[in-house]
Write a protein that binds this DNA or RNA. Sequence first.
DNA 1: CACTTATAATC
DNA 2: TTCGCAG
DNA 3: CTGCGAAGATTATAAGTG
Length: 501
Amino acid sequence: MLFVELARTSAAVASTSKRSDKVAAFADVFGRLAPDEIAPAVAFATGSTLIGRLGVGWATLRDVRPEPATTPSLTIGDVDRAVVTLASISGAGSQARRRDVLHELLAAATEPEQRLIVGIIGGELRQGALDGVVAAGVAKAAGVAVGQVQRGAMFAGSLPAAARVALTAGQPGLAAIELTPAQPVQPMLASPATDVGDALSNTGLASVEWKLDGARIQAHRSGGEVKLFTRNLNDVTDRLEGVARTVLELPGGDLVLDGEVLGLDADGAPRRFQDTMGDFGADETGRGSGLRAFFFDVLHAGGSLVDEPLATRRDVLSETVPETSRLPSIITADADDAAAFLDRAIAAGHEGVMVKDLESAYDAGRRGGAWRKVKPVYTFDLVVLAVEWGHGRRQGWLSNLHLGARGSDNEFVMVGKTFKGLTDELLRWQTERFLGLELGREGHIVHVRPEQVVEIAVDGVQVSTRYPGGVALRFARVRQYRHDKSAADADTIDQVRSLLR
DNA sequence: CACTTATAATC
DNA sequence: TTCGCAG
DNA sequence: CTGCGAAGATTATAAGTG
């Protein structure tokens, strides 16, 4: 199939807000793909490729922009092959060679094809459709239920893989896809709760577990071989030798575990997330060996457990994994008990707790109400130093706020940015407000007189080398504008720093 | 060799 | 990772 | 209730520059 068909479909999908129209458009093209085109085409439709790192990002895309071709000629296979080529280039001179390959690809692409390619490689397709809509398109084309496709994607580890099965083998093929050790599955996700009472009101009797501030890890043991995957299903086995050894030594046969890795200090206290990531990100050389795994769920042990209730999976976990490699947890429906447990987790230096419905199955890939996360929120009253013009649906509005804490003698120290928590009404208000405080412009940044105070919620702060105060906010979001406060009432840089540990 | 830029990963 | 909006 | 897009901070490594 010609790539331009996919490109036209993407453009059509972007131009409508009607989900059903998007689904129908995708279903039309998916139904006409040759078997070998299915996986790459579905990946392209979701704005990604079958391969992870291409070594090409926004900066390269910005520089390499040949004139579009006037006639479409590229096939789905052509684009797929170009992607494989890009990913394979390395060594000295690789940047120039990647540019050459990219230039050749884009020069052969018509205008809509260029838009799709740039969106895919840049990772910002913004067509109003990702895995959810595309899965629905696959289901429609294959004549099966969306849930079947989603389930297949969860256990096959990716939507493109499930799509190929759906479109070539239909419902029976999809039904045959099962959780298989050594084959990573989409991890179950949690939605946020304001406090443990809020969480428990949704879950009922729950397993309340420490939430560690590390990286999610999925451990598979199959035929005496261990594989470790991240939340995004990247294989990190050779970065975590110690963890792999631990899993290898557990009793029983084939096994799939869900957990978190992080580093511990000599006294057993959790290291800062930044330090854990330092070890985690480092290649081999044994640096990641300082990381330890703490498991909280088991998906497979002598058979699949994903459809079993959490209560059962917990029992299996405690029989399989020693307490030292498990997360502390309690079973309760009582908010006071849960709150006390949360306090202990915080006192031990951890991020918070997870509250999980004891009766719930392991809903791979879902972010439902069965798992809720609870972590403390801190607030600061900060001063807006500058604002950036928004993109996409925020085009024409001042959006991203530069935030400053009060330093010495009327100086403000920037500690981060945020665009979160703003309603459309607030965006309108702040655009007018900050244009009124404008001092000057620098690209898409509007500098303003430091007068407007805003209450900012954060999960915490972190050490920073790029911000002048040596501290940066973590997950900052707007709570409200403080019309009752002036800049002189804002919180100080020392108050922000006091949250460091 | 030191430093910068680009990319991709975690949260 | 958080949050608001639209379907 | 679900999916999407608005963008944040940090880390590491590879490749390019002077």
